[in-house]
């Protein structure tokens, strides 16, 4: 099993591919599964899966005609931004501002001024956790009224902690959450809390999913064989009926990307609340 952050994923990937060991990762950069590496699997959505879902929401849920994008200029942010812009194009939603920010950027005043100037129906923010928090603080400071929507990261606990009440009202796509209105997930979160004495975040579920993904596939293969594992795992669908601990029905496609139900969350009073469900995209 491998790292969660996209950057570290990229480097370790080369090594595990050479060693022919399947690697299960939590990173979200689209490029990870686009390198024809047959040994890499995700437990969280790649941006090329989550973006169409989110774009559907922007069109149908938020009914926006114009969007402004704020993204972080690294492999994570650029991937998400490119995918999002593409999805906006196919849905005839106009991108009126396209603002790149630096990883580790501290001062967002200039970016927020530009966002305000763009006058979009909706702001899409795709930055890392700390920068998201700094951005939200600055947006509140400058009195931005436009709804802000983002990916899982934007609603992460870390962002909520750092941004404080500046995060209220922000909506985001939640690929995976312990607050999901699904019983299996809820009971998992409770058990996790009891056992480790702290609240689980989505990375906890990623790890858990990875574990049972491996267990399930290995059982099907019948032995520990990394090559056979890799072959079997592509295109597999695991439902909670077959493997209760997988928590939710999930499909891995030929690239090792995962597809499953996901949610729309909103920050209310400093807490993330699930306000909607987005269906599985299905096989493309």
């Amino acid at each position: 099993m491998g790292p969660v952050f996209s950057g570290s994923v990229m480097t370790s990937m080369l090594l595990t591919q050479a060693a022919e060991i399947p690697q299960i990762v939590g990173g979200e950069a689209p490029a990870i599964t686009q390198k024809n590496n047959p040994y890499v699997f995700r437990t969280s959505f790649g941006a090329q899966f989550s973006m169409p879902k989110l774009a559907n929401y922007v069109r149908d849920g938020a009914k926006a005609k114009t969007v402004a994008i704020l993204w972080v200029n690294n492999d994570f942010g650029k991937g998400g931004r490119d995918a999002f812009v593409k999805e906006m194009g196919t849905r005839n939603i106009k991108v009126v501002a396209d603002i790149s920010t630096e990883a580790g950027q501290a001062d967002f005043s200039a970016d927020v001024v530009k966002l305000k100037g763009a006058n979009a129906d909706l702001i899409f923010a795709y930055t890392n956790e700390e920068e998201s928090a700094r951005f939200l603080r600055e947006a509140k400071k400058q009195g931005v009224k436009t709804p802000i929507v983002g990916e899982t990261t934007l609603l992460g606990q870390k962002v909520l902690d750092l941004a404080g009440d500046a995060a209220n009202g922000v909506k985001g796509h939640v690929g995976l959450t312990i607050d999901a209105p699904i019983d299996a997930v809820k009971s998992f979160a409770e058990r996790f809390k009891k056992r480790f004495n702290y609240a689980c975040d989505h990375n906890g579920i990623k790890g858990y999913t990875a574990l049972y993904f491996v267990k399930h596939v290995t059982e099907k293969v019948g032995k520990f064989d990394s090559k056979a594992f890799a072959e079997k795992a592509h295109g597999i669908t695991i439902t909670p009926k077959d493997e209760p601990n997988i928590l939710m029905e999930a499909t891995w496609d030929k690239n090792g990307d995962i597809d499953r139900e996901s949610f729309i969350g909103e920050v209310v009073g400093g807490k993330q609340k699930i306000v909607g469900t987005l269906p599985k995209l299905g096989t493309k």
Partner: peptide, 12 residues
């Protein structure tokens, strides 16, 4: 300079 250039020239 940092603020003005980010806003009016190029944030990249």
């Amino acid at each position: 300079l940092d603020n003005l250039s980010a806003a009016y020239l190029s944030s990249q």
